[in-house]
């Protein structure tokens, strides 16, 4: 079984595109529609790589990543923000939280595959 990716994004289209891009490459892709559901899924499953949106209802991406980083089993597991945001202050906040990367939407399928392969294996 390949590595497990968790995509946390409130857009059904984005989650579908991520799934369609990564599943043919052998990854198992899980989905969550907001930060809170994302933390629930992360607690329940074993995830090897997180793709997180910033602007989401219920719990935004920054809060979600704080929660993920607090879980002992995910120490060292790569987290990448996948978002329409591109401001320096938001990126700085992401760096402070310890994320591994910042991808701006719209993303190219090849770029996503490359980053996942590089960080998750």
């Amino acid at each position: 079984m390949g590595k497990t990716i968790l995509c946390i994004d409130d857009s059904t289209t984005i989650r579908l595109l991520v799934r369609k891009t990564l599943e043919p490459l052998g990854y198992r892709v899980l989905e969550a529609e907001d930060g809170k559901v994302g933390l629930d899924v992360a607690a329940r499953e074993g995830v090897d790589f997180f793709l997180v949106d910033v602007n989401m209802p219920v719990m935004n991406g920054f809060e979600c990543v704080k929660g993920l980083k607090a879980l002992p089993k995910y120490v060292g597991v790569p987290v990448v923000f996948l978002t329409t945001e591109s401001s320096d202050d938001k990126k700085a906040l992401g760096r402070q939280l310890g994320v591994s990367g910042w991808m701006v939407k719209p993303f190219e399928a090849d770029s996503l595959a490359k980053i996942v392969r590089m960080l998750a294996g």
Partner: peptide, 17 residues
């Protein structure tokens, strides 16, 4: 071409936002 289409499809998400 699919690579380009993938990018275009994500504009729906931007429009929604």
């Amino acid at each position: 071409q699919l690579g380009q289409v993938t990018v275009s499809l994500q504009f729906q998400d931007r429009t929604r936002q």
